[in-house]
Nucleic acid binder design. Structure first.
Lengths: 216, 216
DNA sequence: ATATGTGAACCAGTTCACAGCG
DNA sequence: CGCTGTGAACTGGTTCACATAT
């Protein structure tokens, strides 16, 4: 049961399950049924069972899922047993906000280096991180174990930066730039764009209609 | 052709189209075919044509879509002809980052008020915005035209805050808190959680397999 | 000739229904 | 008996194929 072709929708729900199970674990809940987990996450129990069954038989019939077991399994499936080092590209207003954001480290994600092209920034220390010239990226990647890059550069520089990240061997990118980046097959990119989210909200506000909606 | 039941997936692609068309407009491109727009956005031309056809007949056979026309239409469809005022709830580290982020205003989204529960914060000025007690929210909503709330409070306060937002009549929420919030039907909530995005990336890094992936 | 708009065909993802196990 | 795990049925979203317009 070591799968190799999980639908992407399923992969996107896994972190959700993990988060729920972390919470349950903290609350000392020991067993949870797909029923209860489902009503908590607003996902159908069948969905949850099917998703989890891609990876193994974690549940106990008649009982449910051991929270502890599920926690461990999801941690392993998602690759969260190690700490992940990341490089931040772009230390403008957005980049600085990301650097000062304390939400990554508790989850095992660490910004280990930051880069910029602006000569005025290079050498400066921002949130305990010395800004380096982006030309040093490849070398830095060799000597440290950075596997994820966060892109926080302006729109017009983003594609170029992403290209050089890929050339340096980065395969995972968290992209905050408002572009539809072109990446070769095998490279994973995840976009974060609050403005686009807001625009779907205003669509609903403008086109008054019933029914709530969600995304991930 | 004024629709009332557009699939949510379609709604989520509209901002993407809008962004592309904005860019094309800036580049003085006058006409674009679904073909070309598709290869730019990595979306099939048929998909684009079908999506747009929900809202009208914007294209010209044999030519393509007038960029200008499409820009205007999408602006109208998404409700972006007006400026939207937003309330930010929570001015901790994350909230401050959001306040200082300059990416909202150029797109017509303005943080018009910010709130917190921490007495130490109340009355302080953060990025030109005076922090108010959250108890003043309902009044503030009455006197201004705020229709969107941004939630940037800690996990354990988020559901409570969202409940009171809903009670105050807010129907659109951009949620940065790592929770699966319960909202009544008719309320739209969009979650932004970079950690979850990172976790899907580490899944792919850990379970080495081919094929790139994307989300929105 | 070229590109849109759209019903029909197709496919992926979700839900159903139930067998199997604790 | 309760809840998981899963093939089968279904749903809705995407792509195909072509009629239609310029």
């Amino acid at each position: 049961m070591k799968p190799n072709n999980i639908p992407e929708v399923v992969v996107q729900r896994l972190p959700l399950y993990f988060r729920a199970v972390e919470l349950l674990s903290r609350r000392k809940v020991e067993v949870i049924s797909s029923q209860d987990l489902g009503s908590f996450l607003k996902i159908s129990p069948t969905q949850i069972r099917k998703d989890l069954s891609y990876f193994g038989h974690f549940g106990k019939q008649g009982k449910g899922y051991s929270v502890n077991r599920l926690h461990k399994e999801l941690r392993s499936i998602l690759g969260l047993e190690q700490q992940w080092c990341m490089a931040l590209i772009g230390v403008g207003r957005l980049g600085r906000a990301i650097l000062s954001y304390g939400g990554f480290e508790p989850h095992g994600f660490k910004i280990a280096a930051c880069f910029d092209t602006d000569p005025k920034q290079i050498g400066k220390k921002v949130s305990n991180c010395i800004v380096q010239d982006i030309s040093g990226l490849e070398e830095k990647l060799r000597q440290s174990d950075i596997h994820i890059a966060i892109v926080a550069v302006p729109q017009d520089q983003a594609q170029r930066v992403i290209d050089s990240l890929v050339k340096c061997g980065i395969r995972s990118i968290l992209n905050y730039a408002p572009i539809c980046a072109r990446v070769p097959a095998g490279i994973n990119i995840r976009d974060i764009d609050p403005v686009m989210s807001l625009q779907t909200l205003t669509f609903h506000l403008t086109n008054i209609r019933e029914g709530s909606s969600r995304t991930r």
